[in-house]
């Protein structure tokens, strides 16, 4: 430009400023929010639960504490009124045996809920659209407590983890 008042130093500093700001934006997008993990290819596996408790969409799907995907959809099966959880597993984990079991677990006592997968032993692997047969629903703290109180001294809770 013809205006001469703006020096080289100013230009460099503005460049640093803009780059720094864009880097911060990129970090917020990739590292802080979910955009980074959700970028790769996934395949969808379903699991039926009688109760999903406080499970949310986008909750992690973990194997042995390691995140391998996330919950993509939670809906209800109109025929048997069971909750259907659609899990988007990262395409790299395509060797989950078909007798893998799924349970809804809680991180800490009151922490967020997630789906934990317990791999089975079969030699066939779960593929896109498959259904996980063995599931265990969320523990509901309040029903657990009430069961414990009413059944105290009688029998053990009928449905325990």
């Amino acid at each position: 430009m013809k205006h001469k008042g703006i020096g080289r130093g100013i230009e460099i500093w503005v460049g640093v400023f803009v780059l720094g700001g864009l880097a911060a934006l990129a970090m917020l997008a990739m590292q802080v929010s979910d955009a980074g993990g959700g970028g790769g290819a996934t395949f969808r596996v379903h699991a039926d639960f009688s109760n999903v408790g406080g499970l949310n969409e986008k909750a992690p799907v973990m194997v042995g504490g390691v995140r391998i995907g996330r919950v993509g959809e939670i809906s209800i099966n109109k025929e048997n009124y069971r909750a259907v959880v659609g899990m988007d597993i990262n395409a790299g984990y395509d060797n989950l045996p078909i007798d893998t079991s799924a349970s809804i677990l809680t991180a800490g006592l009151l922490g967020a809920q997630y789906v934990g997968l317990q791999p089975g032993a079969e030699e066939f692997y779960l593929q896109h659209g498959d259904r996980v047969a063995i599931t265990q629903s969320a523990i509901q703290l309040e029903s657990l407590i009430s069961q414990f109180m009413f059944s105290q001294g009688k029998s053990k809770p009928s449905e325990s983890p």
């Binding site: 917020l28 997008a29 590292q31 802080v32 929010s33 979910d34 993990g37 909750a59 996330r70």
Partner: peptide, 12 residues
């Protein structure tokens, strides 16, 4: 925990 809870559009 951050990546699971923070959403690109709704939050960032």
């Amino acid at each position: 925990s951050m990546q699971n809870g923070v959403e690109l559009f709704a939050d960032v």
